[in-house]
Design a protein around this nucleic acid. Structure first.
Lengths: 212, 212
DNA sequence: TAGATTGTTAATCGATTAACAATC
DNA sequence: TAGATTGTTAATCGATTAACAATC
């Protein structure tokens, strides 16, 4: 993962993937340039916001024409770190863990899931969507071999912290946390949280008349 | 869903679920009051931010003691709309749809998944985690009977818009979109987007040394 | 009472939006 | 050239943080 020194720009970064989606469809239509205005219209945003957001990726546009599509895609993907592969494991092979194991989009973003871990003896040794399931007890051993950069936590909340500790002990420095627990980690470990249970309703609709 | 007229407060609202988690554990320890300072310390936030956030739920605290735990939980849950039940359907019974069907946390937040819809004949008529799977063609009919308020879209991206149109046609006004597509909907329909494929890496770590 | 904590009012900070010159 | 679009610089807006009086 690229580590954008000067943290922040978070809101801009969150918008980039949706731009990417539009730009890719322009590419599919073999268009050579796409303007910030076009992207903005598509997403009901202000053109100036799109231009400002794109600027952080380092892309340079052409007055009158817009941004070169191919270059722009590369620029955004690079900025998001989607152009490099990352080795990941899933810890917790329940419903959500299984779903994420088979989630094709991750691979498109360079996220390769190498293994899953669980405590359920009925699951250990099997595979889900081609991903082998190991015992959680073997996490440290397997990690030494697999060298994952990222661990995705999909265990039930009560086990989140202890699982996290195991992950940290195995040397992994990046965690994507799908539980509603705020994990305690050393300063050297980065945590993203994706709490589906609070995602809904906790959030304002991201589009709709309400949004102004 | 409660419709907070004056939109926004979005950042505050997003923090409320994590407060709730802490407050509930205080309740589990039979504590009568919890202070904003305690919550803030637990989450590495500023006390003033916690107080401001809690204030939007309408809770009133007691100087020196803090906020009454039971009342505070009720206040937050009410504000988030988690104290009322919502009827939901899942459209797309693939990996993710199945996972969400069995996701226990949703029920805790008042989200009841009544049915799933898919186009795969092999799935139609079966159940996932007790949720019956119907044909997507029957969505309009079944909706008339089930009267769902919310539709959760977990179909592959290329089918997202057409699925969305069917959902809107059936009269559903709230959509939780798990694809990376920006859906086109009438002004009367609210859409939340939860794009897992861009969630990671597109986001700054939500906790860690990087976060300051 | 003394002191911790709330809630209000003001100050700061950052992100969004506006204005506009530069450019192809 | 004329005009659409970029990118910069300034203005606005909203959220976070600070300061502090009120209170139990």
């Amino acid at each position: 993962m690229p580590n954008h020194k000067k943290i922040s720009f978070a809101p801009s970064i969150r918008r980039l993937p949706s731009y990417l989606h539009i730009i890719r469809s322009a590419q599919a239509r073999s268009e050579e340039y796409i303007s910030g205005t076009v992207i903005a219209n598509e997403l009901n945003l202000e053109p100036i916001q799109v231009r400002k957001d794109l600027a952080i990726t380092g892309i340079v546009g052409k007055p009158k024409k817009g941004y070169p599509v191919t270059e722009l895609i590369a620029s955004i993907e690079h900025y998001l770190g989607w152009d490099t592969n990352h080795r990941a494991i899933i810890v917790g092979a329940g419903n959500l863990g299984s779903a994420l194991s088979g989630y094709q989009e991750f691979r498109n973003h360079g996220l390769n899931i190498l293994a899953a871990f669980d405590t359920d003896p009925a699951k250990i040794g099997k595979t889900i969507h081609g991903v082998p399931i190991y015992s959680l007890d073997d996490l440290e051993n397997e990690s030494a071999a697999l060298k994952p950069e990222i661990a995705i936590i999909t265990v039930p909340s009560p086990f989140a912290q202890s699982t996290c500790d195991t992950i940290v002990a195995s040397g992994i420095r990046a965690i994507w946390n799908f539980t509603n627990v705020k994990l305690r980690v050393p300063e050297t470990v980065a945590v993203w949280r994706e709490d589906l249970s609070s995602g809904y309703a906790g959030n304002i609709p991201c589009q709709s008349s309400l949004e102004k």
